[in-house]
């Protein structure tokens, strides 16, 4: 049945133009030489790309974002890998409930989670903002770590693990020498997905900015609410390239089907 409907092809093209057009426009706008974004361009310049590196707040918040995402990722792995292993390995009472609890941070509206964390961690427990930021990001990364690694583990043949145990290896050694190497791509993918989730997060971070502490998306948000120059366009282009690279890696590791599963 090769006779495709041309109407639908055209419609799909227009929808993709809608999806990608604005992102392409940012890229074009980033080369505008004047200080105000406008169309058509008045010339061609790379100075805004240079300017990104000269705005101190972009650099410092970028650093915060990376540190929080990486450290949070590490914490989420420490908490999430054992939990994912237990949830896919064992059968015990309350397993479904526990599974639901571990995945629930994606269901709670981010803005609500951010607010309650502010209220209790910072205000009530007097935890410093930086630590609170880290905790908040760990909470939102945990479900992604557990879901991706859990699905990797569900494809893992646990007979291999039993074979290792029968050959005299301890449980811990078996986990590191047999289980972990076999789910390595799942773990790397989980780290990348969780990293993007955390790096792009606004809803939690926005409640946890304080004097001298903020993440890059929050800094960008504040910037575009006040200025309208092509610096932010240049920065956006750099972030999009960064996103594309990570997406390419995830695709290599898990395939695009990871995204279409619900």
């Amino acid at each position: 049945m090769q006779n495709k409907s041309y109407g639908l092809t055209l419609f799909t093209f227009l929808v993709y133009l809608f999806l990608l057009g604005p992102l392409i426009l940012i890229a074009i706008a980033s080369f505008e030489p004047s200080t105000v974004l406008k169309f058509p361009l008045t010339g061609f310049s790379l100075k805004w790309y240079k300017n990104v590196f000269e705005v101190g707040l972009f650099m410092s918040t970028f650093k915060t974002s990376v540190i929080v995402s990486l450290l949070g990722n590490f914490l989420a792995l420490l908490l999430g890998v054992p939990a994912a292993y237990a949830l896919s390995r064992g059968s015990f009472r309350g397993k479904n409930t526990l599974n639901a609890i571990f995945l629930s941070p994606v269901l709670i509206p981010g803005i609500v989670l951010g607010f309650t964390l502010l209220k209790f961690i910072i205000i009530s427990l007097h935890i410093p903002i930086y630590a609170a930021l880290l905790i908040g990001h760990t909470v939102i990364m945990l479900p992604f770590i557990i879901r991706v690694i859990g699905s990797s583990l569900s494809n893992f043949d646990f007979a291999i693990e039993e074979a290792s145990l029968s050959l005299g290896s301890s449980r811990l050694a078996t986990f590191f020498k047999v289980v972990l190497p076999n789910i390595r791509s799942g773990i790397i993918a989980a780290v990348l997905i969780a990293f993007l989730e955390s790096f792009n997060n606004v809803d939690i971070s926005i409640f946890m900015s304080g004097p001298g502490i903020s993440t890059l998306p929050i800094q960008m948000l504040t910037y575009v609410q006040n200025y309208f120059d092509p610096t932010i366009a240049a920065l956006s282009v750099m972030l999009m390239i960064f996103t594309a690279v990570i997406m390419f890696l995830i695709e290599r590791l898990l395939g695009l089907s990871y995204f279409t599963k619900r």
Binding site: Y16, L20, P22, P217, V224, S236, L239, M247
Partner: peptide, 25 residues
Amino acid sequence: LLALAIFPLLTSSVVRSFSWMIVLG
């Protein structure tokens, strides 16, 4: 086409909203 749909999904919501400021402003 799936990759082209997933890309915006993974892109920062700040970037994506900003792109519409350029278009609609």
